[in-house]
Protein backbone atom coordinates (compact mmCIF):
# COMPACT_ATOMS: atom_id res chain seq x y z
CA UNK A 1 0.00 0.00 0.00
CA UNK A 2 2.81 2.31 0.89
CA UNK A 3 4.48 1.82 -2.44
CA UNK A 4 1.24 2.54 -4.25
CA UNK A 5 1.01 5.88 -2.53
CA UNK A 6 4.59 6.60 -3.40
CA UNK A 7 3.89 6.20 -7.05
CA UNK A 8 0.82 8.34 -6.85
CA UNK A 9 2.22 11.50 -5.37
CA UNK A 10 5.81 11.69 -6.47
CA UNK A 11 6.17 13.18 -9.92
CA UNK A 12 7.36 10.65 -12.44
CA UNK A 13 11.12 10.74 -12.78
CA UNK A 14 12.40 12.23 -15.98
CA UNK A 15 16.02 11.20 -16.14
CA UNK A 16 17.02 13.65 -18.85
CA UNK A 17 15.51 16.76 -17.34
CA UNK A 18 16.72 15.70 -13.90
CA UNK A 19 20.22 15.34 -15.23
CA UNK A 20 19.96 18.72 -16.90
CA UNK A 21 18.70 20.35 -13.72
CA UNK A 22 21.56 18.96 -11.70
CA UNK A 23 24.21 19.92 -14.21
CA UNK A 24 22.93 23.14 -15.73
CA UNK A 25 25.43 25.31 -13.84
CA UNK A 26 28.33 23.22 -15.10
CA UNK A 27 26.95 23.35 -18.63
CA UNK A 28 26.74 27.13 -18.45
CA UNK A 29 30.27 27.51 -17.11
CA UNK A 30 31.67 25.04 -19.63
CA UNK A 31 31.94 27.34 -22.69
CA UNK A 32 33.71 30.09 -20.71
CA UNK A 33 35.97 27.63 -18.98
CA UNK A 34 36.66 25.83 -22.24
CA UNK A 35 37.65 29.08 -23.94
CA UNK A 36 39.97 29.97 -21.08
CA UNK A 37 41.55 26.53 -21.00
CA UNK A 38 42.21 26.61 -24.71
CA UNK A 39 43.08 30.26 -25.29
CA UNK A 40 44.95 30.94 -22.06
CA UNK A 41 46.45 27.70 -20.78
CA UNK A 42 46.72 25.96 -24.13
CA UNK A 43 48.31 28.98 -25.76
CA UNK A 44 50.75 29.54 -22.91
CA UNK A 45 51.79 25.90 -23.19
CA UNK A 46 52.24 26.28 -26.92
CA UNK A 47 54.28 29.48 -26.55
CA UNK A 48 56.29 27.78 -23.83
CA UNK A 49 57.00 24.85 -26.11
CA UNK A 50 57.96 27.02 -29.08
CA UNK A 51 60.37 28.93 -26.84
CA UNK A 52 62.37 25.71 -26.53
CA UNK A 53 62.68 25.26 -30.32
CA UNK A 54 64.64 26.93 -33.06
CA UNK A 55 61.49 28.18 -34.76
CA UNK A 56 62.03 31.05 -37.14
CA UNK A 57 59.28 32.06 -39.53
CA UNK A 58 57.24 28.92 -38.96
CA UNK A 59 57.06 26.89 -35.79
CA UNK A 60 59.22 23.79 -35.67
CA UNK A 61 58.79 21.22 -32.96
CA UNK A 62 62.19 19.75 -32.24
CA UNK A 63 63.28 20.42 -28.68
CA UNK A 64 66.40 22.53 -28.40
CA UNK A 65 66.55 23.25 -24.67
CA UNK A 66 67.38 26.75 -23.54
CA UNK A 67 68.93 27.79 -26.85
CA UNK A 68 66.57 30.75 -27.37
CA UNK A 69 66.83 31.91 -23.75
CA UNK A 70 70.61 31.93 -23.88
CA UNK A 71 70.47 33.80 -27.17
CA UNK A 72 67.91 36.21 -25.77
CA UNK A 73 70.00 37.24 -22.79
CA UNK A 74 73.03 37.76 -25.01
CA UNK A 75 71.17 40.30 -27.16
CA UNK A 76 71.80 43.94 -26.36
CA UNK A 77 68.28 45.12 -27.29
CA UNK A 78 66.70 42.63 -24.87
CA UNK A 79 69.01 43.73 -22.08
CA UNK A 80 68.24 47.35 -22.88
CA UNK A 81 64.55 46.50 -22.82
CA UNK A 82 64.82 44.85 -19.41
CA UNK A 83 66.84 47.77 -18.06
CA UNK A 84 64.26 50.18 -19.43
CA UNK A 85 61.53 48.17 -17.82
CA UNK A 86 63.33 48.39 -14.50
CA UNK A 87 63.95 52.15 -14.75
CA UNK A 88 60.58 53.00 -16.24
CA UNK A 89 58.69 50.57 -14.02
CA UNK A 90 60.17 51.69 -10.71
CA UNK A 91 59.84 55.41 -11.46
CA UNK A 92 56.36 55.06 -12.91
CA UNK A 93 55.10 52.98 -9.99
CA UNK A 94 56.70 55.15 -7.33
CA UNK A 95 55.56 58.47 -8.78
CA UNK A 96 52.06 57.28 -9.65
CA UNK A 97 51.50 55.93 -6.15
CA UNK A 98 52.92 58.96 -4.34
CA UNK A 99 51.05 61.38 -6.56
CA UNK A 100 47.80 59.40 -6.53
CA UNK A 101 47.90 59.05 -2.76
CA UNK A 102 48.72 62.73 -2.27
CA UNK A 103 45.91 63.86 -4.55
CA UNK A 104 43.46 61.54 -2.86
CA UNK A 105 44.33 62.94 0.57
CA UNK A 106 44.09 66.49 -0.79
CA UNK A 107 40.72 65.78 -2.36
CA UNK A 108 39.53 64.24 0.88
CA UNK A 109 39.74 67.60 2.73
CA UNK A 110 36.21 68.69 1.88
CA UNK A 111 37.45 70.81 -1.01
CA UNK A 112 35.16 72.79 -3.27
CA UNK A 113 34.39 71.43 -6.73
CA UNK A 114 35.65 68.02 -5.74
CA UNK A 115 33.56 66.35 -8.43
CA UNK A 116 35.06 68.47 -11.21
CA UNK A 117 38.62 67.95 -9.97
CA UNK A 118 38.09 64.22 -9.67
CA UNK A 119 36.81 64.08 -13.22
CA UNK A 120 39.80 66.08 -14.47
CA UNK A 121 42.28 63.84 -12.66
CA UNK A 122 40.71 60.65 -13.85
CA UNK A 123 39.72 61.24 -17.47
CA UNK A 124 43.10 60.19 -18.94
CA UNK A 125 42.27 56.66 -17.75
CA UNK A 126 39.49 56.48 -20.33
CA UNK A 127 41.91 57.17 -23.17
CA UNK A 128 44.04 54.76 -25.15
CA UNK A 129 47.80 54.80 -24.59
CA UNK A 130 48.10 55.44 -28.31
CA UNK A 131 46.27 58.75 -27.90
CA UNK A 132 48.25 59.59 -24.77
CA UNK A 133 51.42 58.91 -26.70
CA UNK A 134 50.32 60.99 -29.66
CA UNK A 135 49.38 63.93 -27.46
CA UNK A 136 52.57 63.91 -25.39
CA UNK A 137 54.71 63.44 -28.47
CA UNK A 138 53.28 66.69 -29.72
CA UNK A 139 53.73 68.49 -26.40
CA UNK A 140 57.27 67.23 -25.86
CA UNK A 141 58.57 67.67 -29.39
CA UNK A 142 61.41 70.18 -29.15
CA UNK A 143 60.50 72.06 -32.33
CA UNK A 144 57.00 73.20 -31.50
CA UNK A 145 56.28 71.91 -28.00
CA UNK A 146 57.15 73.00 -24.48
CA UNK A 147 60.73 73.92 -25.40
CA UNK A 148 59.63 76.45 -28.00
CA UNK A 149 56.86 77.69 -25.70
CA UNK A 150 59.36 78.50 -22.97
CA UNK A 151 61.74 80.08 -25.44
CA UNK A 152 58.97 82.26 -26.86
CA UNK A 153 58.18 83.37 -23.32
CA UNK A 154 61.70 84.75 -23.15
CA UNK A 155 63.61 81.87 -21.59
CA UNK A 156 65.93 81.58 -24.58
CA UNK A 157 68.29 79.00 -23.11
CA UNK A 158 65.50 76.63 -22.08
CA UNK A 159 66.17 73.16 -23.44
CA UNK A 160 63.83 70.23 -23.13
CA UNK A 161 64.74 67.66 -25.71
CA UNK A 162 64.23 64.46 -23.76
CA UNK A 163 62.15 62.95 -26.51
CA UNK A 164 65.09 62.90 -28.94
CA UNK A 165 67.79 62.33 -26.35
CA UNK A 166 68.52 58.64 -26.03
CA UNK A 167 69.66 59.09 -22.43
CA UNK A 168 66.47 60.85 -21.37
CA UNK A 169 63.76 59.53 -23.70
CA UNK A 170 62.75 56.79 -21.28
CA UNK A 171 61.70 59.48 -18.78
CA UNK A 172 59.19 60.91 -21.25
CA UNK A 173 57.48 57.54 -21.04
CA UNK A 174 57.30 58.00 -17.30
CA UNK A 175 55.74 61.47 -17.64
CA UNK A 176 53.05 60.24 -20.03
CA UNK A 177 52.35 57.00 -18.17
CA UNK A 178 52.02 58.84 -14.85
CA UNK A 179 49.69 61.32 -16.53
CA UNK A 180 47.52 58.46 -17.74
CA UNK A 181 47.46 56.32 -14.59
CA UNK A 182 47.88 58.40 -11.46
CA UNK A 183 44.23 59.49 -11.55
CA UNK A 184 43.27 55.87 -11.34
CA UNK A 185 45.53 55.38 -8.33
CA UNK A 186 43.93 58.50 -6.84
CA UNK A 187 40.46 56.98 -7.32
CA UNK A 188 41.49 53.78 -5.55
CA UNK A 189 42.94 55.71 -2.61
CA UNK A 190 40.00 58.07 -2.42
CA UNK A 191 37.55 55.18 -2.28
CA UNK A 192 39.58 53.61 0.50
CA UNK A 193 39.89 56.89 2.42
CA UNK A 194 36.14 57.30 2.30
CA UNK A 195 35.87 53.86 3.81
CA UNK A 196 38.05 54.66 6.84
CA UNK A 197 36.01 54.58 10.00
CA UNK A 198 35.39 58.21 10.90
CA UNK A 199 35.11 57.33 14.59
CA UNK A 200 38.77 56.37 14.65
CA UNK A 201 39.63 59.80 13.27
CA UNK A 202 37.38 61.52 15.80
CA UNK A 203 38.96 59.52 18.60
CA UNK A 204 42.46 60.51 17.43
CA UNK A 205 41.36 64.13 17.20
CA UNK A 206 40.10 64.02 20.78
CA UNK A 207 43.44 62.54 21.79
CA UNK A 208 45.01 65.71 20.42
CA UNK A 209 46.67 64.31 17.29
CA UNK A 210 47.31 66.79 14.48
CA UNK A 211 45.89 66.22 11.02
CA UNK A 212 49.22 65.17 9.53
CA UNK A 213 49.84 62.78 12.40
CA UNK A 214 46.37 61.32 12.01
CA UNK A 215 47.14 60.59 8.37
CA UNK A 216 50.64 59.26 8.90
CA UNK A 217 50.05 57.17 11.97
CA UNK A 218 46.45 56.10 11.69
CA UNK A 219 45.00 56.35 8.20
CA UNK A 220 47.85 55.44 5.87
CA UNK A 221 48.69 52.19 7.69
CA UNK A 222 45.09 51.05 7.25
CA UNK A 223 45.45 51.63 3.50
CA UNK A 224 48.15 48.99 3.17
CA UNK A 225 45.95 46.79 0.98
CA UNK A 226 45.39 49.70 -1.42
CA UNK A 227 49.14 50.32 -1.67
CA UNK A 228 49.57 46.66 -2.48
CA UNK A 229 46.77 46.65 -5.04
CA UNK A 230 48.17 49.74 -6.75
CA UNK A 231 51.69 48.38 -6.73
CA UNK A 232 50.52 45.18 -8.29
CA UNK A 233 48.26 46.78 -10.91
CA UNK A 234 50.89 49.32 -11.94
CA UNK A 235 53.59 46.66 -12.17
CA UNK A 236 51.31 44.70 -14.39
CA UNK A 237 50.75 47.77 -16.57
CA UNK A 238 54.46 48.50 -16.73
CA UNK A 239 55.36 44.99 -17.88
CA UNK A 240 52.63 45.08 -20.49
CA UNK A 241 53.44 48.57 -21.75
CA UNK A 242 53.70 48.44 -25.49
CA UNK A 243 51.36 50.95 -27.08
CA UNK A 244 52.72 53.97 -25.23
CA UNK A 245 56.23 53.23 -26.47
CA UNK A 246 54.98 52.71 -30.01
CA UNK A 247 53.09 55.99 -30.05
CA UNK A 248 55.42 58.23 -28.03
CA UNK A 249 58.98 57.25 -28.90
CA UNK A 250 58.60 54.39 -31.35
CA UNK A 251 61.25 52.68 -29.24
CA UNK A 252 63.76 55.31 -30.24
CA UNK A 253 66.01 57.10 -30.55
CA UNK A 254 67.57 53.89 -31.88
CA UNK A 255 66.30 51.20 -29.59
CA UNK A 256 66.98 53.22 -26.45
CA UNK A 257 63.38 53.13 -25.19
CA UNK A 258 62.14 49.71 -26.21
CA UNK A 259 60.35 47.58 -23.66
CA UNK A 260 60.17 43.78 -23.51
CA UNK A 261 56.73 43.87 -25.11
CA UNK A 262 58.08 45.81 -28.08
CA UNK A 263 61.02 43.47 -28.39
CA UNK A 264 58.68 40.51 -28.44
CA UNK A 265 56.47 42.10 -31.10
CA UNK A 266 59.43 43.03 -33.22
CA UNK A 267 60.95 39.54 -33.13
CA UNK A 268 57.68 37.72 -33.66
CA UNK A 269 55.96 39.78 -36.32
CA UNK A 270 58.72 41.73 -38.06
CA UNK A 271 61.85 39.60 -37.95
CA UNK A 272 60.38 36.10 -38.17
CA UNK A 273 62.17 34.94 -35.05
CA UNK A 274 59.20 33.34 -33.36
CA UNK A 275 61.26 31.05 -31.16
CA UNK A 276 63.04 34.08 -29.77
CA UNK A 277 59.75 35.97 -29.54
CA UNK A 278 58.22 33.10 -27.58
CA UNK A 279 61.19 33.01 -25.21
CA UNK A 280 60.88 36.74 -24.54
CA UNK A 281 57.11 36.35 -23.98
CA UNK A 282 57.78 33.60 -21.46
CA UNK A 283 60.27 35.85 -19.68
CA UNK A 284 57.57 38.52 -19.45
CA UNK A 285 55.12 35.99 -18.05
CA UNK A 286 57.71 34.93 -15.51
CA UNK A 287 58.25 38.57 -14.50
CA UNK A 288 54.54 39.15 -13.96
CA UNK A 289 54.10 35.86 -12.12
CA UNK A 290 57.02 36.65 -9.82
CA UNK A 291 54.98 39.60 -8.61
CA UNK A 292 51.44 38.26 -8.94
CA UNK A 293 51.86 34.92 -7.23
CA UNK A 294 53.17 36.25 -3.88
CA UNK A 295 50.45 38.92 -4.04
CA UNK A 296 47.66 36.42 -4.63
CA UNK A 297 49.12 34.10 -2.06
CA UNK A 298 49.13 36.78 0.63
CA UNK A 299 45.62 37.89 -0.35
CA UNK A 300 44.27 34.37 -0.10
CA UNK A 301 46.01 33.76 3.18
CA UNK A 302 44.61 36.94 4.66
CA UNK A 303 41.12 35.96 3.58
CA UNK A 304 41.49 32.56 5.16
CA UNK A 305 42.78 33.98 8.41
CA UNK A 306 40.21 36.75 8.52
Amino acid sequence: MMSLMTQKTIPAKQPLSDWFRRNVAKLVVAPTFGLIIFFVYGFIAWTGYVSFTKSKMLPTYSFEGFYQYIRLWKMTPWNVAMENLLVFGSLFILIAIVLGCLLAIALDQKVRAEGVLRTVYLYPMAISFIITGTAWKWILNPGLGIQSLMQSWGWESFAFDWLINSEMAVYTLVIAAVWQSSGFVMALFLAALRGVDSEIIKAAYLDGASLSRIYLVIILPTLRPVFLSCFFILTHMAVKSFDLVVALTGGGPGYSTIMPANFMYEMTFRRNQIGLGAASAMMMLATVMAIVIPYLYSELREKKNG
Binding site: M2, M5, T6, T9, I10, P11, R21
Partner: peptide
Protein backbone atom coordinates in the same frame (compact mmCIF):
# COMPACT_ATOMS: atom_id res chain seq x y z
CA UNK B 1 6.86 13.54 3.65
CA UNK B 2 3.51 11.75 3.89
CA UNK B 3 5.31 8.42 3.82
CA UNK B 4 7.05 9.25 0.55
CA UNK B 5 10.82 9.30 0.47
CA UNK B 6 11.71 12.73 -0.86
CA UNK B 7 15.51 12.49 -0.80
CA UNK B 8 15.72 13.00 -4.55
CA UNK B 9 12.64 15.13 -5.06
CA UNK B 10 13.24 18.70 -6.24
CA UNK B 11 12.23 21.38 -3.70
CA UNK B 12 9.50 22.70 -5.93
CA UNK B 13 7.87 19.27 -6.05
Amino acid sequence: IDQNVVNDVHPKD
